[in-house]
């Protein structure tokens, strides 16, 4: 993964909120819920601020105790996973350079090398659709009409 790659949160498909240090997310298209805590929640906060991959690794490595290569590997895996779940998408609109508000984040995060690095995990919950009480989301084809190729949301009456 190129260190200068930058991602953005896949809004409006994805809604997210960080509560008591845990980030909770929903992909409205799939109805899947996710949670991230610890390092994962930090990474999400950095992504939200528009940090590029290299900047994220740098920031985490500064704050957590651990082998640099382990950190790099774990973070790249997490970002890959977030991408695969369509929670983030490549952002080509921003210029280069790191735009992270380091001061803002440091207020809510551990200080330099104060905590052990624990590889972040993206927890996925596929059985929480009951909580997602939006109108049904239907698949439409390129013309905008529902397509027979998509699964019909209803069976025979």
């Amino acid at each position: 993964m190129t260190e200068l790659l930058r991602f953005r949160i896949n809004v409006p498909k994805v809604i997210h909120e960080t509560i008591e240090g845990e980030t909770v997310l929903v992909n409205l298209d799939s109805g899947n819920y996710y949670s991230l805590d610890g390092v994962g929640a930090d990474v999400w906060g950095l992504l939200e601020q528009g940090a590029h991959v290299g900047g994220i690794i740098e920031w985490i490595a500064d704050r957590y105790k651990g082998e640099r290569t382990d950190i790099e590997k774990a973070l790249c895996q997490l970002i890959e996973e977030l991408k695969r779940e369509e929670l983030i998408v490549p952002d080509e609109t921003r210029g280069s350079g790191n735009v992270v508000d380091r001061d803002g984040l440091s207020k809510v995060s551990p200080g330099l090398h104060t905590a052990m690095f624990v590889p972040p995990a993206l927890n996925k919950y596929t059985d929480m659709q009951d909580l997602l009480l939006l109108d049904p989301i239907h698949d439409v084809d390129e013309t905008g009409w529902p397509s027979t190729k998509a699964d019909s949301p209803i069976s025979e009456k």
Partner: peptide, 8 residues
């Protein structure tokens, strides 16, 4: 809904 999810 996200808060309800977090509580769950």
């Amino acid at each position: 809904q996200l808060r309800v999810f977090k509580k769950t």
